[in-house]
Structures are given as C-alpha cells and as structure tokens.
Design a binder for these strands. Structure first.
Length: 198
DNA sequence: CTCGGGATGCGT
DNA sequence: CGCATCCCGAGG
C-alpha cells in the first residue's frame, strides 16, 4: 500500500492525536456532526490498526426526526440511540451493508451522527465513499453495535486543527420524509475527493 | 406468524 | 432503473 499524503500528515501529528472525550459527544447533534469532520476514526483488530479521516456525515435529530430510527420509539434495535453519548449505533441495511453512527447528546435524547465517508489514512482497502463502503473498509459490523468510543480499540481522535470549508445539504436517501428531507443535515468537507456524492 | 420496506451499492 | 438479502417493526 502506498504511503499516502494523508498517512504522512497523520504520522507527523501522531504524537498529538487525542481521543475525543465523552463531553464532545454530549452536545448539540448538528454541532457534533460538523466537528466530526476532519477527525480520525480508529479501529484496531488484532495487530491491524485501520484509520480513516471523517469527511462526510449526517445528523439525525431524535424521536421527531422522521428518518431517524429512533422515530420508531424505544425498541430493541433503537435502544442504543436512547442511551448515553459516545457509543456506536451500527445496523445492517438492505440485508447487505452496515452503517455506523455515533450517539450524541444526553441519555434519552435519541440522536446520532451517521458516518458517510472517510478518507483512507492507514490500512484501508477498497472504496470508502459511502456508509456501507466505509464500514466494510474499516472492518465495522453489528458486533460493534453499542461499543463505547472511549475504548482503546475503537474510537475517534483529533489532531491539530485542519483548515477546510464545510458544505451542507439535504441528507441522502430520505426523500420520503416530507419537510425533514429538506433540512440541511448532511455535512462534508468541500472539495474532498472521498465524499460519496459531492 | 406474515409482510412491506429500508440512512446502500452496483450493474444495466 | 432493478436487484441483492436480511432485519426490523407493524399488524393479524
């Protein structure tokens, strides 16, 4: 695998990389979504460490947000979304692909941020520009549902602040959701080549 | 229990 | 645009 520009930059900053604290996630979901851009998703399995830089996300705003799974209420499936912030919500969609979310805000708020795309930094194979592709490349599946992101094997970290512009727009694949479909709850790094649908 | 549909991705 | 492929949640 090539020593990519992103990996080179990451190695330079490696000593300063810090795991995001619980308080990061325990804030307004749209704010968390925007601030997740540029952060590093890190997953260690065995002796392999996979790293991707988050470049595209979507915010899902709790029980009243029609496309949010928590809009169905508290069920076995959505229980994680109603739980404390800083945990993962991973589910299988269309029987094929996995999607990864980060639970936000206080317990009971039932909000989350969907990770839609990452830029490969380390040990990622295949495409990463979509929620299902991202999970495949990062080795993420339902076994990681409910995982605490303050753990040492699966977490999100920040490095030195990187300058970029953020683009916002309607979420993908929720056209059925009336006025909720029109809200600009999707955010991505402007000009980044790994965004799913620029 | 059955059944309809989905925060996707890929091929036609 | 069709379809893979399975889980979920609603309804009987």
């Amino acid at each position: 695998m090539n020593y990519s520009t992103a990996e080179f930059l990451f190695s330079l900053l490696n000593q300063r990389v810090q795991k995001l604290p619980r308080e990061f996630y325990d804030r307004d979901t749209q704010l968390v979504a925007r601030e997740l851009l540029g952060k590093f998703l890190i997953h260690k399995t065995g002796d392999i460490e996979r790293i991707g830089k988050i470049v595209e996300v979507e915010a899902y705003l709790g029980e009243h947000d029609l496309p949010a799974h928590s809009a169905k209420g508290r069920t076995a499936r959505t229980e994680i979304m109603f739980g404390p912030p800083g945990h993962t919500y991973v589910y299988l969609i269309y029987g094929i692909h996995h999607c990864m979310n980060v639970v936000t805000e206080r317990e009971g708020h039932a909000s989350a941020v969907l990770l839609r795309a990452v830029e490969p930094v380390k040990n990622l194979e295949g495409r990463t520009n979509g929620p299902g592709l991202l999970c495949r490349a990062m080795g993420i599946d339902k076994r990681l549902n409910g995982h605490d992101l303050l753990s040492d094997d699966f977490y999100i970290a920040e490095s030195e602040a990187e300058k970029f512009s953020t683009v916002k727009g309607p979420r993908i694949g929720v056209d059925y959701a009336k006025h909720w479909a029109k809200r600009h709850l999707r955010f991505y790094i402007k000009g980044n080549a790994f965004v799913s649908k620029p």
